[in-house]
Design a protein around this nucleic acid. Structure first.
Lengths: 353, 353
DNA sequence: TAGCGCTTTATGAACGATCAAATGAACGTT
DNA sequence: AACGTTCATTTGATCGTTCATAAAGCGCTA
């Protein structure tokens, strides 16, 4: 090894400098470090991986099928996960199952070839075969989203939809609105039910709960608009709608505009996910703290390896309200604005429950 | 090695079975293959990578800063790249530069630690330091998007915006529209100028070019709506707009809806990129053939390694028109529909020029 | 001063694959 | 029967690091 010769130490000492500097005498450390910098030395990760029998890499499945892409946030989530993984001295290996109905072979490949040593799961669902398979094969994993079928499994992180929506409701109340409806998905989906419950709770607390001010639709914009129309009628001008997603909020947005109403000034709107859409349309939305989620997932997996303190139950993060013109009652410009609080994309707010 | 012992051959023969099956006698091949399957053997990729001095991995930078995320298509592009890389026996390593204004250290890290042996660049721009650095360090790379500063560099793949927009214009003509305007970005951006030229060309060919039916705006929805309003006024009902992006088309869309006009029936709209937005709003759009782009990039890099025939000039793919209600003159439902040709997300159309 | 303990550095082996070269087997040619 | 060729398979070395362990240095105590 070049560095070793240049610094007149053994290769093992160089290894120690890189991996356990505290074991090395100060002046040796300095001398070797100087040579490392001078020669631009970086450990060959393949060799390290081979010797340590550990890849320092995480598999992340990218579902190719339409839908199942985490709303619009997958792109941002991947960025956050990428950044977080670097801080944990590892990297991501994205992959897609050849047949996305049967993902296990892809997981098996990655594990058997030792290309990754853990996974981050997303889009978990009932009857998801992955958690059981990974558990049975002793492969560590952490999930963004609850793992429904394994109640005792606690290495998951999720976003508190109920509290998020409740915060959205309170944001509306603070801005002077008081007639607050909810546009969500039909009962039965865990995420949808969670978000709706936040509306029930927060409006009840404030004494403004009106059960009739609720409608359901499935994801599509058209369906959302159709469901929103009578609701907007019923709630009336000066009212508001909190929606289970940004797309749904946009459905309501289009209804408002067709009636000549200005979102914000005439009728408040809150979306969910803070997707690019929300920024484009000046839509107030609930941003998921994906930076925290990613960091937490990585942290769990690191502790799983090194034996730190692991969560005994799932972790839930709270979204933050990103206020834009659609909840500004003071008459924002008719055209959607440049995008309210659009400063940095990365936030680090949100606490656990 | 277990497989070797089980099949009673040497470890090298197992290696040959995996990597050069044609060198192995048929019955030996069969016997070893059977054992490989039975034992679920997969080569340890770290060991292979160490010995071959090659990672079989591609670095892909994910720009974290807002903007610079390839419109809305990065997510889809990453999926396509992931799938393509698997077919080329390699995998992706996504990364983000700590300081996205100075990306080189991140590239240097990956190269020096031999974690990747090539890169796919995106979002190349003038004065991009990356191409020169990679060239100077002998690191192979291919780019999605032209590499402006190095005219002799030909390992890039791009999408033919002009032809795409021209196809959009022809699609409108075929559907019976004849008054066709263009909403784009201010002159000076290569991509914007390219797309606009397709409008000029195709309308001129058809004898329906009206220079005044053009407006410019910058990316934001509000600005696009503001620019679209007078243009829609000028072109009049029954007219159409081809737009440089889906978001701009949506700006026009909102203007139409506010005036009680139905996109398609009353006024045609064509967007660009076929993002999720387009599907949600039933907006006809131009889909970039990302499957082809990804495959081509991987193919270039593979040939670069093995010495196949390499492109002597950049490759340009043609987008495809995805027809939806916004260009259906026969009066589509007022609410945006479930999404026209929304079948599979992966297409393989598009030829090179 | 011998012996002990602690810190610091060095040595040999190993991780699991592929490379380069050698060996063995089969076959036709002279 | 000896020889060269080709095909199939094996052998030993090697990639660059870290592990396990040994050795060296050094101060302190008995």
């Amino acid at each position: 090894m070049d560095v070793a010769r240049a610094a007149q130490v053994s290769r093992q000492t160089v290894s120690n400098v890189v991996n356990r500097p505290y074991r090395v005498a100060p002046q040796t450390l300095e001398r070797v470090t100087a040579e490392i910098l001078r020669l631009g030395f970086r450990p060959n990760l393949a060799a390290r991986s081979l010797r340590q029998e550990r890849a320092n890499a995480l598999g992340v499945e990218l579902h190719a099928g339409s839908g199942r892409r985490m709303g619009d946030i997958r792109d941002v989530f991947l960025v956050e996960l990428t950044i977080a993984s670097r801080q944990h001295d590892s990297h991501l290996v994205p992959f897609a199952a050849a047949d996305f109905e049967h993902p296990l072979p892809a997981y098996e490949d990655l594990v058997a070839s030792k290309l990754v040593d853990a996974f981050v799961l997303t889009d978990t669902r009932h009857d998801d075969p992955r958690p059981a398979w990974l558990r049975d094969h002793g492969v560590p994993f952490a999930s963004f989203g609850r793992v429904w079928d394994e109640p005792e499994f606690s290495w998951w992180v999720d976003v508190d939809g109920a509290t998020g929506v409740a915060d959205g409701v309170r944001h509306l109340l603070e801005n002077g609105y008081s007639r607050i409806g909810f546009l969500g998905w039909p009962a039965g989906s865990p995420i949808g039910d969670d978000r709706r419950s936040g509306w029930v709770e927060a409006t009840t607390d404030a004494g403004v709960f009106v059960p009739a001010w609720r409608a359901d639709a499935l994801g599509e914009l058209g369906a959302a608009a159709a469901a929103a129309a009578p609701l907007i009628e019923a709630i009336g001008p000066g009212g508001t709608l909190v929606c289970a997603s940004d797309v749904m909020a946009l459905g309501a947005w289009t209804v408002l505009r067709e009636r000549g109403l200005t979102p914000g000034a005439d009728f408040g709107l809150v979306g969910f996910d803070d997707s690019d859409l929300a920024e484009s349309f000046g839509l107030t939305s609930l941003r998921q703290p994906l930076t925290d989620v990613a960091e937490n997932l990585l942290s769990i997996l690191e502790h799983a390896r090194l034996g730190g303190n692991l969560p005994t139950q799932g972790t839930v993060f709270r979204p933050t309200v990103v206020a834009r013109n659609s909840t500004n009652p003071l008459g924002a410009p008719a055209a959607p604005a440049t995008g309210g609080t659009s400063a940095g994309n990365r936030t680090s707010s949100g606490g656990s429950t």
